[in-house]
Design a protein around this nucleic acid. Structure first.
Lengths: 161, 161
DNA sequence: GTATGGCCTGATACACTGTATCATACTACA
DNA sequence: TGTAGTATGATACAGTGTATCAGGCCATAC
């Protein structure tokens, strides 16, 4: 059982279920692809999923310190690279931080809604947005290969509260 | 006369004109607002405009070294903060770099088209995109306050060439 | 004309984020 | 087993950004 299982997430959901599902999905997906979700990578993924807030690489590094051996930065960055490559984790550019992805089946670059009150980030994978961006850029002669969309504002919970 | 005036920009335009116009616009705008475009800030703006590629803070720092005194990082970051606050410069999050804005009249966050071949970045200030993002987020209960949109791909020139 | 307060810059030190490189260990497969 | 490929450990360093204090400049008030 992980730390996350010990408490309920601020938004009221059972976050342990999020983590479990994410890890299970990752296992399945890596088996399918012949990719190796090693204990280290699994642990890093679990730490990224410790909340719905993006996590810094050095936060992960700190939490990997189990008293015995303290890993070095490349250890974390390599694990993150693997996870990102397989769509299991996204990098939030405007925060230099990392966020678990809950639908990694097809690789993608999502659109992120960053709440400036609670810090939670939700992924909005909107095809309309994607197409609009692609079309508008194309009208300027630009061929889009990858999209970074990060919106800061207020989430539904924080607006209500 | 600046360095930029000594050569023609890759895309074939007279880049010195870009720089001159940007600096002139900045002067006017700061006078209107009662903001102080000091020699240092003006110089930093000029260096940001040295090309249509985003420029790193430490590149600017290096070019500020006139042999006599070498400025320290905070000097550059403070100047950049001022310029960003007044919409004269944008920060490209995915590159940790800074780009001159050619229509700073009304403050805004633009959409950026980053060419992975030539490195040039053009700003696409598309209201349709802005509205689509705002609407789609609102449908998820999210109220957008600021947008970061950075698209990587191929510009018209590099596709043709 | 000087005094005062606010803004701008200088300067030192440090924090945070990420990478290059080489060595070691593990795994899968022949 | 042996071997090639992959994963991790470990050291060092590069790149990016900030906290903090001190000094300088300028406008306005008196």
């Amino acid at each position: 059982m992980t730390d996350a299982a010990l408490h309920i997430h601020p938004t009221g959901h059972d976050h342990a279920a999020c983590v479990d599902e994410a890890l299970e999905t990752a296992e399945t997906l890596c088996v399918e692809r012949g990719a190796r979700l090693t204990p280290l990578r699994r642990r890093v993924l679990e730490l990224v999923w410790s909340s719905h807030r993006p996590v810094g690489a050095y936060d992960i590094l700190g939490k990997l310190d189990d008293g015995a051996r303290k890993p070095a930065p490349p250890t974390v960055y390599r694990a993150l690279d693997f996870l990102i490559e397989h769509g299991l984790v996204h990098r939030i550019e405007s925060m230099n931080a990392y966020l678990g992805c809950n639908h990694p089946e097809q690789s993608h670059t999502g659109q992120f809604l960053i709440c400036r009150e609670c810090g939670n980030v939700t992924e909005m994978d909107d095809e309309d947005v994607r197409q609009t961006l692609r079309r508008r850029a194309a009208e300027k002669g630009f061929e889009v290969r990858s999209q970074t969309v990060e919106l800061v504002g207020l989430c539904a919970n924080c607006k209500a509260g």
